[in-house]
Nucleic acid binder design. Structure first.
Length: 635
RNA sequence: GCCACUUUAGUUCAACGGUAGAACGGUUGCCUUGUAAGCAUCAGAAGGUGUUUCGACUACGCCAAGUGGCACCA
């Protein structure tokens, strides 16, 4: 193969030979970026130049790309097995994905696949792996491709959609698939694989197209690696917020209210801490807290535009012949508060904060624990201000958001969504608003990603995306500039020249929804919350009857200091109590026996630690108070 | 909403066209008390509904909810 090197010169390498080493020595700075696939010192495949430098990627076994390649090959193996078992099956697409691979397949009429069929398919796949078929790359013309895939409807469609005249296919045994590559050299590399799931999908993701069956799997080089992976999956299951929510008594769901979580006593204790902190932060930052009704007259929603744009997601009811809607958002309520008074420019920015309970109709299939619900509380705020104040206000917000997220040790990134095609307002206004946002980000040295055309129709926005422990990205915080609503509602303020002006509004939420954020926190901390958040912070355990009075008195002393403490003098062995409270992930377990009574001290053990630490009663109070006050992540 | 799967005690799981079994948890009693499970005891279950059947937890259908995807997400 002919490689174009970075300096523009061309060099001939033989496919499959160790030319990689040579090539990378010629372009050492690109060694990570380029060339092909090397595995165990051997060049196993290459792909067409994918960047302008005309270089290929070099990959080693440590590189995650190699696993994608392996999984991609495994997808081919699965497709081959399926074709053997279900002649006439139509193959659509079979890529590797972040974890594993899938293949979309239309099974012949009458075949309904279930995961009970997996062992059968896996068995056939093992035969293919054991047969050690080499994967042979072949460049063919479109015409040849049409002939080769004439029985494969989706492949034929795909060929028509491809640009250019050349196609690349890979063959293994009797099977051939349209594919850009790269692949591992032979099917025998795919030793540790497993089919994991089944779902429906549409060709090209369009529900007007054929319904396909998507089979998911994962593949590793060895069975050992597969087993390790399955173990990690199991661990993740342990930190699932739905499971922990039940075990720790945080929240529940009921058939009577799909997507409408019930908060249990322990969950409310946690939520109180979040909300109290939030309220305090907002007082400190010049917000005025309000609360607006859950249900409001249709007329309001017509004015706001929700009746026109969002009605399908709203719950509507009738009171004495008047139509009302349960609020899906808090903004119209906040604006109604603003319009209750006259305002001067001197009051701006005027910041209204509201923990607003909203309801939205979400498709049943979209519901997911606390992550996607129909009933939730937004930690909302609406700030009315003049255009010239945007930059400074956004800077303040960026600092506030960072403070909140870093308190939890949550990784996040920011995305700026700009003017969509379907927008209202002047282009210049949009450009100005976007540049204000960018300026605020740049001035604070905050990196961000741009989502062109993804803004709301009324203004650009910044979205804060948090990463949960399963690696999923959730949108939590948002800062949205709104040039529309204040005008629709005739909001005004009086400026220096005694003229009426329309303010701009910023919608913003930091947690996004208390429910979703709590779900993320549960998984993030695996249920072992920092002390300040933990529903119960301390358990006091007297060792014997003689210590009970001392222990009880100390428990009361902690309680008086607003420390959430449980007193456990139940009739159980100490070991059993430790187990019980450890599985509840209580931060501090305090033991009080004769030794402590004599020395006027306490002995505590931290969650997740073995040591028993003896300190004076006062020292314990100051150390736990500091833990709480500083919202420590690590004790 | 679409596709697939799932639904048995408070929880996690088992067996089965005819009697539903366990573990943890709960009750009661006994024993005990220094860092992750003491002993005994009792109680406790088929999501709803329809059909087939002498008989349905089990088969089939519908409804509901849940899970994983898809689509959706002002």
């Amino acid at each position: 193969m002919l490689l174009t090197l970075k300096d523009g010169s061309k060099k001939e390498f033989q496919n499959g030979l160790n030319g990689l080493e040579i090539a990378s020595s010629l372009a050492p700075s690109l060694a990570k970026k380029c060339l092909g696939i090397r595995f165990n010192g051997e060049v196993i495949d290459y792909r067409e130049p994918i960047n302008e430098d005309g270089v290929f990627e070099i990959l080693t076994k440590e590189d995650p790309e190699i696993l994608h390649t392996l999984n991609h090959t495994c997808a081919h193996i699965m497709a081959q097995a399926v074709l053997r078992l279900y002649p006439g099956a139509q193959l659509a697409f079979g890529p590797s994905i972040e974890e594993g691979f899938y293949y979309d397949i239309k099974f012949p009429e009458g075949v309904v696949l279930s995961d009970k069929d997996f062992p059968k398919i896996e068995k056939e796949m093992h035969k293919i792996v054991d047969a050690n078929y080499p994967l042979v790359r072949e460049d063919i013309s479109k015409e040849e491709g049409k002939e080769l895939f004439k029985d494969q409807k989706f492949k034929s469609i795909h060929i028509d959609e491809l640009e250019g005249e050349a196609l690349t296919i890979y063959r293994q045994g009797e099977f051939a698939d349209l594919c850009k590559g790269p692949h591992v050299p032979s099917t025998s590399y795919c030793k540790g694989f497993k089919l994991t799931a089944l779902s429906g999908a549409y060709f090209h993701g369009d529900k007007n197209n054929d319904q396909l069956t998507r089979i998911y799997g994962v593949c590793f080089f060895s069975n050992q690696e597969l087993e390790d992976y399955l173990k990690i999956l199991e661990e993740r299951k342990q930190s699932d917020h739905k499971r922990l929510g039940r075990e720790l008594g945080l929240f529940m769901l009921s058939d009577y209210g799909p997507g409408m979580p019930f908060w249990l006593p322990n969950g409310i204790l946690l939520r109180e801490q979040l909300e109290n902190w939030w309220i305090k932060l907002h007082k400190q930052n010049g917000y005025l807290r309000i609360d607006t009704p859950i249900m409001l007259n249709k007329e309001l929603w017509e004015t706001s535009g929700h009746w026109g744009h969002y009605k399908e997601n709203m719950y509507i009811t009738k009171i004495e012949e008047e139509e009302f809607a349960i609020k899906p958002m808090n903004c119209p309520g906040a604006i109604t508060v603003y319009n209750n008074d006259q305002h001067s420019y001197k009051e701006l920015p005027l910041r209204y904060a509201e923990l607003g309970h909203v309801h939205r109709y979400e498709a049943s299939g979209a519901l997911n624990g606390l992550f996607r619900v129909r009933s939730f509380t937004q930690d909302d705020a609406h700030t009315l201000l003049r255009e010239s104040q945007i930059g400074e206000e956004v800077s303040k917000l960026l600092a506030l958001y960072d403070k909140v997220y870093s308190t939890f040790g949550l990784p996040y990134h920011i995305e700026l969504s700009t003017m969509p095609e379907d927008h209202v307002g002047e282009v210049e206004t949009w450009q100005h608003a976007e540049s204000e946002l960018i300026k605020a980000l740049d001035e604070n040295g905050i990196p961000y990603k741009i989502n062109p055309g993804d803004g709301a129709f009324y203004g650009p926005k910044l979205d804060f995306k948090l990463r949960d422990s399963l690696g999923r990205i959730w949108q939590c915080g948002t800062i949205q500039l709104d040039y529309q609503l204040p005008g629709r509602f005739n909001c005004v303020y009086t400026d220096e020249n005694n003229e009426k002006k329309t303010p701009i509004m910023i919608h913003r939420a930091i947690f996004g929804s208390i429910e979703r954020f709590t779900g993320i926190l549960i998984e993030h901390f695996k249920g072992a919350f920092p002390t300040w958040l933990a529903p119960h912070q301390v358990v006091v355990i007297p060792v014997n009857d003689e210590c009970k009075e001392y222990a009880k008195k100390y428990q009361e002393e902690l309680e008086e200091r607003d420390i959430r403490v449980i007193y456990d003098d139940s009739d159980e062995k100490l070991g059993k109590k430790f187990r019980n409270w450890t599985v509840k992930k209580i931060p501090y377990i305090l033991v009080i026996g004769s030794k402590e009574v004599e020395t006027n001290s306490v002995t505590y053990r931290l969650y997740g630690k073995q040591e028993q630490i003896n300190v004076s009663k006062d020292d314990f109070i100051s150390l736990i108070s500091e833990d709480i006050a500083k919202k420590k992540l690590v004790r």
